[in-house]
């Protein structure tokens, strides 16, 4: 099962708009996608679960995907995170 580590750089963390975009991107794929922060695990397609990760600025988020489009999903989430969710620093 492929996995990546995303470093959350934007100021308020994976919250509000960034969380919204993250979930929307994950929802585009068929794979089961899980985001992990410390001991907390979340379904990446669930906004409420992603919020409960409490991933603030500087968090290293492990993202795992399982399914036919797993690689593509992780690739897309990496691109989104690299773009800093369209926000300035």
């Amino acid at each position: 099962m492929p996995e990546i580590i995303l470093t959350i750089r934007n100021k308020v963390g994976l919250h509000a708009r960034p969380a919204s975009l993250f979930v929307r991107e994950a929802t585009k794929f068929k794979s089961t996608i899980t985001a992990i922060h410390g001991e907390a695990q979340a379904n990446a397609k669930s906004i409420l679960n992603v919020l409960t990760l409490g991933a603030n600025q500087g968090t290293k988020l492990i993202v795992r995907a399982e399914g036919e489009d797993a690689e593509a999903a992780l690739q897309a989430l990496t691109v989104l995170n690299d773009s800093n969710y369209g926000e300035a620093e």
């Binding site: 509000a16 708009r17 919204s20 397609k45 679960n49």
Partner: peptide
């Protein structure tokens, strides 16, 4: 306005 977009997304949350 983004807050109300997030509210919509919450209602659409598969786990919820």
């Amino acid at each position: 306005a983004a807050i109300f977009e997030a509210h919509q997304q919450m209602l659409d949350d598969p786990d919820l």
